[in-house]
Design a binder for these strands. Structure first.
Length: 284
DNA sequence: CTCCAGGCGCCTT
DNA sequence: AAGGCGCATGGA
């Protein structure tokens, strides 16, 4: 294959803006008609085009599989939606968010990002992560005239930082959680790369050993970076959505909500969750 | 000013 | 088992 800095992924039903800006990933920056980001140690610009997604890198690529995998362009969205349960609430969310997809992110960046997400608004999560990468990531080669992007600092790098250095990135009480989890991952106590090969419950239990990682953050990592499409993170937005859409008359406690999501949404529950989440956040 | 944000860990009942 | 509270920080 010839090396080049651009390619087009032919794909239908892909809303790039909704997907990159729906709270599953925190580093994509909007330009006039494109998105710029740093993934897999590379500067990338993505642009929606009529027949798919146009991609541009700073350095020539001979193999674009890393990006095709990240974007999940091979996923047949219609087949995913076909396995959703038939209920009017979910149908409404799907109709409102046509082309919304799930990404497949790098596990460490995903885990660290969601440790930093607790009781923060998405805007602030983005600010914390921007500061962390600018200060402690490696500068990436990019086009001249563009602001320099940085790689996400790996677990060993964050483990080697002091807690005050982390707190200086405005992450507050999350600093000791991120630090201790970075040490556990860098030290091999949890092997993130092995999680996709485990049964869902075992992979979840592995993640929940880590400090600062409970059920919700574990499910985010399982869904957004490990390929477990049935993982269903329940945050305040989703809890509110389930309460309002499915239990409008009586108050449902956490236990009841957990049983409902485990039985109602099926094998593509994680996709359903993303539609409900985006629908709740964007409806007027 | 108060309230709350893609929670978690620990402490009470 | 289930619920309450503190934790930093900043925006509404």
């Amino acid at each position: 294959m010839a090396a080049g800095c651009t390619t087009v992924f032919p794909v239908r039903d892909y809303d790039l803006a909704a997907t990159l800006d729906s709270g599953q990933s925190f580093r994509w920056q909007a330009e006039a008609d494109a998105w710029v980001g740093a993934i897999h140690g590379r500067w990338v610009r993505l642009r929606p085009v009529p027949d798919g997604i146009h991609a541009e890198t700073a350095r020539p690529q001979t193999d674009w599989r890393w990006l095709a995998d990240y974007l999940q362009v091979e996923v047949d969205l219609a087949a995913v939606l076909a396995r959703f349960p038939e209920d009017p609430q979910l149908r409404e969310a799907v109709n409102a968010c046509h082309g919304l997809r799930l990404l497949r992110q790098e596990p460490w960046e995903c885990l660290a990002s969601f440790i930093l997400s607790s009781t923060k608004q998405i805007v602030q999560i983005r600010q914390i992560i921007a500061m962390l990468t600018a200060r402690h990531g490696e500068p990436l080669p990019g086009p001249t005239g563009q602001p320099t992007l940085h790689s996400f600092p790996d677990a060993a790098r964050i483990a080697a930082l002091s807690e005050p250095e982390l707190r200086a990135c405005k992450m507050g009480f999350r600093a000791p959680y991120l630090h201790a989890t970075a040490q556990a991952v860098a030290g091999g106590k949890v092997n993130l790369a092995a999680l996709p090969g485990l049964p869902l419950a075992a992979a979840r239990a592995e993640l929940m050993q880590l400090p600062g990682v409970g059920r919700k953050i574990a499910d985010c990592v399982l869904l957004f970076s490990c390929g477990f499409a049935e993982a269903f993170p329940v945050d305040v937005w989703i809890a509110r959505a389930l309460q309002e859409l499915y239990f409008p008359r009586r108050r449902a406690n956490a236990r009841r909500l957990e049983r409902f999501v485990a039985t109602h949404f099926g094998p593509q529950a994680g996709y359903a969750q993303q539609y409900l989440f985006h629908y709740m956040r964007t409806r007027t």
